[in-house]
Design a protein around this nucleic acid. Structure first.
Lengths: 137, 137
DNA sequence: ATTTGTGCAAATCGTTTGCATCTGA
DNA sequence: TCAGATGCAAACGATTTGCACAAAT
């Protein structure tokens, strides 16, 4: 990992109130360098194994949740059995290809929700998820 | 269970191409009599235990999936770890109360999606899920 | 009689936890 | 130094599977 990139990611992580440890830097590099992506813990763990000394799966989970908490990632649930984490935290929506079990971003201005209904008394909107499930035809 | 209701449910199940067994009738009764509801396998299993002789959890899962397959139910995924099944299969959306881990229906005409984006070549839309996550404030 | 469904227990998958050890500020 | 982070293995919750037995047509 280049020095410039490393420091970029380190400050990213510090801004989240987390220590830039070796593991977080490695995962941050995989997540925040280059294109936006949708990863599962499993996938990220695999990738980390390929490029760095060692990161445990538990640490991958910890880190994904900490990053999400800090607003660096966004969790996306499409199946009842696992989670994706999206490096794009801007408001946008998703196609979900069931067969391939993969997500595709939908540009925010490609689709609009007209008039969110008023949430029940005492609650407020935290996040809006729109998932368009696709099948092969 | 009354006879009239029983036969109603039996035909419901037959229309789905399934045999109206004791277990399916019991579950169908819990699901399709009265108000629309959002159930988990666990909850339905509990309820079934209270009103009938015996239904195994595996059968509850089988049945929920068969009913879903047949268009009698709709699966809703809000967390990465479990599924809800909605007895309302009309197009509509959901509030999700994270704290209580429960769903609330949003009437279809309370919110509109303007212009679904065109799905990628070779795919077509199977289902559109809109979930508005709510937090207590 | 044949096909379909069911129950049970074991297996699986994704995820979380407890705790001893290590590491960054 | 010492709060915070990590690794490991065990625990966990939801779901699925394999297979012998039972029930529906």
């Amino acid at each position: 990992m280049e020095l410039a990139v490393k420091q970029d990611i380190a400050s990213h992580i510090r801004q989240a109130g987390l220590r830039p440890t070796r593991q977080r830097l490695a995962l941050g590099d995989l997540l925040f360098t280059g294109q936006h992506r949708h990863v599962t813990a499993e996938i990220l763990h695999q990738e980390a194994r390929d490029v760095t000394e060692h990161v445990s799966l538990a640490t991958v989970y910890n880190t994904l949740h900490q990053f999400t908490e800090a607003g660096l990632l966004r969790e996306v649930n499409v199946t009842g059995t696992k989670s994706f984490f999206d490096t794009n935290t801007r408001e946008h929506h998703h196609f979900y290809l069931e067969k391939e079990d993969m997500l595709i971003d939908i540009d925010k201005d490609k689709m609009e929700l007209s008039g969110l209904p008023t949430p029940p008394e005492g609650t407020s909107v935290e996040q809006v998820d729109v998932i368009i499930r696709l099948k092969k035809d």
